[in-house]
Design a protein around this nucleic acid. Sequence first.
DNA 1: ATAAGGCCCGTACCTTAGTACGGAGTCAAG
DNA 2: CTTGACTCCGTACTAAGGTACGGGCCTTAT
Lengths: 154, 154
Amino acid sequence: MGLRTGEVARRAGVHVETLRFYERKGILPEPPRRKSGYREYPPETVELVRFVKRAQQLGFSLREIRELLSLREVPEGARARVQSLVEEKLREIEHKIRHLEAMHRALRELLHACRCTGRSARCPIIESLNGCPTCRADGDQEKSLGKKGATRLP
Amino acid sequence: MGLRTGEVARRAGVHVETLRFYERKGILPEPPRRKSGYREYPPETVELVRFVKRAQQLGFSLREIRELLSLREVPEGARARVQSLVEEKLREIEHKIRHLEAMHRALRELLHACRCTGRSARCPIIESLNGCPTCRADGDQEKSLGKKGATRLP
DNA sequence: ATAAGGCCCGTACCTTAGTACGGAGTCAAG
DNA sequence: CTTGACTCCGTACTAAGGTACGGGCCTTAT
């Protein structure tokens, strides 16, 4: 028993075209076909698609998500390379969590104060994401611009 | 002392054009100009722009960020409306944090196992974002599709 | 005072992530 | 055995978030 595009799409909460799109982008593996040409997805595809949508909401691009998913099946040989990649992703996630927590605190603070204190400066919302010591490089960002456009900025 | 576009851009790690773009989108307030027409930004603009970039990395759209920023100055009258908006944002952030934590656990698990256990199913990465009880509605997503395209999906 | 570099503006273009379209073949219920 | 829903494919379009371009004024260091 395999699911057809419409069924997968409905269960995962996306459009049929999105499944084809993900397939083209290498995010969904090409499923087997019946002789009519119809795709027959394994049921776990639904979870897979949901994972993609959630990860997007957390600020990961499709490229990053594909990378993340590729970690499922490691080519047996290349352990170390993958391991450091996973570690990098872990740092990134920790970073995001800390930022979100800071934002959360700021909004709660705002809910209490119910207004920014000063005329202009000292707003807890903005401060929330700027007091992060791990982000405190400043020079990093300036360097990363370098001679304008050397590194892909956003 | 006010900063000019280039200075703000350099310090915040974005392009000058991005500042103009944000201004058009209502994310940066229009700064005062000198008589030459040059913009003179207050120094806290740098923090503001950094906030925007961080928030984007956390999966917020510019529209949402503008909303978030608008909470800084509440029109004095509309408290209750703002308060519920803030509470909604707080829930959303908690949600994101929980998902990221789940993803983090999954990747750590993967780092230990260093391979998905089964041939195909039972992958900790994918399971990480699917076991969330708050997301467990399923019907929600199906309904949200409704009669195809009624609600803006992604 | 003049040249290099910064800034102005509008417009055009780019990438990412889908959405829509339309003609043709497939499937299942009546 | 037909009718309506589903699927196929390629191609075109859209929206968001920038980026680039080019002609024309500022500014400032030499």
